[in-house]
Design a protein around this nucleic acid. Structure first.
Lengths: 353, 353
DNA sequence: TTGAAAGCGCTAACAG
DNA sequence: CTGTTAGCGCTTTCAA
């Protein structure tokens, strides 16, 4: 069906080894032979057979990304980074989008299949213990993003420092009664972001007021949802008549913040005059809604993951690396800062047609 | 390094052919032999080598998707559909995200590489003429989504009908002075959406008023951008003092509509009281912003693309198929309809953590 | 029902 | 510098 190196060899009057060498830029080929072969390559519009190459050379030149698809915005940005770097490095990217827990194992198994991929990136989910041994054994490189395991490379965000900056910012704006809306307390981001909140207050000599802590239960998406933000904000507002009511809130995620905004508006209150808000993530909707937030460098994380994977593919015995990214404060309207970053009203990112 | 069928054969005391038959559920294997082999398979935790299989069986069980990454929202939804269906059908999905025109050719070439993929899906861009012949020649299945070519399967949206519905809706709400903000007139969506606009007015006995037509130039993203919407709306508002000013607008895309909203707000006007808006696409931001719009069934389009590709892989000689999806009117706040669909305030789709 | 053997198209080691 | 040869791990005839 297709043109093979045998065809090329016959046509050019050389051996297949020579053809292969030409194709792979091997140094020891005379310029004339090379020219001759390459002209035949062009004439017959030869295309190498990817899998034959991969079988013979014993590398797939392909990596896979196992990434949750339900966390809307994060994955999009990260994926951009992954995709951009994969292309730059000329490796193929197999995308495994996870919608539920079962799929994780399925994809892990699939990636494990010998020769299938040279490495896998695993995002935002707990890496199953039952698989770490398998990967170690096979020696298949793994890079973890937004999650952590001591035996693998991992790229995470400094939630504690980020949260602290967020709350510091609120403090700097004069707020002293700062409440927090959080996700499910069993999750790492919830724990760490609370820790940052705690540290900030502590550093300013303010005790954490348990009345000011609003955790979601173990619900859908661990409470990192618009619904949860809405409901928790309702609770915040109910308590408002008490002696000391918060003048500002640190919300653990933008998506919750969006729900909180709905609740605040419903109650006829103004942001930031009545209640200032700072949240976390900087998803695209946050920009649109004017939320002050802590930006996670998602693109960069995705991109770095690919670079690391590639490095590890070259040298599998590197000891596990860790990189932590510091979130950046993005000042918009919701916090009431006068040091607001000016934004042109028409700064959309792109349109679909 | 890995366990091969030779190991299995030796261990089970049979030939490799038999092992292969067991693995592939070939009927002519005795139950005992099968059991014996399969137990060895399990014991040695054998994993087939994907590329060896693919080389020998001459099919890749992999498809690729060449999809623009700059059109933020559309691609995300479509990708969800593609990914979901790929998984259901157990084919691997190679993702080629396009950021600029050059990449298109690169990826096309890459997909063309013999044996690499069994089929390719091509989204939202003009399929280069220079490549249609190549694909035809190699017989590599292609499915086009949100774009069209007579020689390939294509899945598109009925822009004309959708636009007509949008404008009909405005008419039904009592508007008679309906202007249109459009993208660059050279693009298919711009042409078709205008055509729908025209037909709607015509069917109601209203002549198209050239003064009411606002086209963007051939700028970034062909004018399907927030900036363009903003700028065109400014022009609309400047003309407002004239004898007959529009009471409603049909905007060719949500993203432009978002820019238009900015401009309207800046002018101190209200939506929908002073100006009603209906747009097109139903990107996620549209929901958030309360835009009435025509929803494109993006997930379904992605999903169908994979199904079709698979069908064509089975039977390459099918004649080209076409499917057109009818956009659905999603009523929100921007049009001022009282028949508004009720929406819980907290209906976010998902959070990142 | 089964084993042996011939590819699939390529890379890479080995002679020359 | 170049041709030959031996795999890579699997599928698939073809005999037995």
């Amino acid at each position: 069906m297709g043109v093979t190196i045998y065809d090329l060899a016959r046509e050019a009057g050389v051996g297949i080894g020579t053809v292969s060498r030409c194709l792979n830029n091997h140094p020891s080929v005379s310029p004339e032979t090379r020219a001759k072969v390459l002209s035949v390559v062009k004439r017959l519009s030869y295309q190498p057979h990817a899998y034959a190459q991969r079988l013979a050379s014993r590398q797939a030149n392909t990596i896979s990304a196992i990434i949750p698809f339900f966390t809307n915005h994060f994955f999009v940005e990260v994926l951009r980074g992954v995709q951009g770097k994969s292309q730059e490095l000329e490796v193929d990217l197999i995308l495994y989008g996870v919608h539920n827990a079962d799929q994780v194992e399925y994809y892990l198994k699939r990636s494990l299949s010998r020769g299938h991929v040279d490495g896998v990136m695993f995002f935002s989910m707990k890496f199953p213990d039952s698989y770490v041994e398998k990967f170690q054994q096979i020696g298949l490189p793994v890079v973890l993003v937004d999650t952590h395991h001591p035996l693998f490379d991992s790229i995470t965000v400094r939630n504690v420092d980020g949260a602290k900056s967020a709350v510091d910012h609120l403090y700097d704006l004069g707020h002293r009664q700062i409440a927090m809306i959080n996700g499910y307390s069993g999750t790492r981001p919830a724990k760490e972001r609370f820790e940052g909140y705690r540290r900030s207050l502590e550093s300013h000599g303010i005790a954490v007021n348990p009345e000011f802590l609003f955790y979601s239960g173990k619900e859908k998406l661990d409470g990192f949802s618009r619904e949860s933000g809405y409901n928790l904000m309702k609770r915040v507002l109910e308590k408002r008549n008490d002696s000391s009511s918060p003048s500002a809130l640190f919300v653990a995620s933008d998506i919750q913040s969006l729900g909180a905004v709905d609740a605040i508006r419903e109650a006829g209150l103004r942001i930031p005059e009545d209640l200032a808000l700072v949240s976390f993530d900087d998803i695209e909707l946050a920009r649109h809604a004017g939320l002050t937030t802590m930006r996670q460098p998602m693109y960069e994380m995705g991109s770095l993951a690919v670079s690391w994977l590639k490095a590890r593919m070259k040298d599998p015995d590197l000891s596990p690396r860790e990189e932590t990214f510091l979130p950046e404060l993005i000042i918009r309207r919701s916090c009431g800062s006068t040091a607001r970053v000016t934004q042109s009203p028409a700064s959309g990112r792109g349109a679909m047609v």
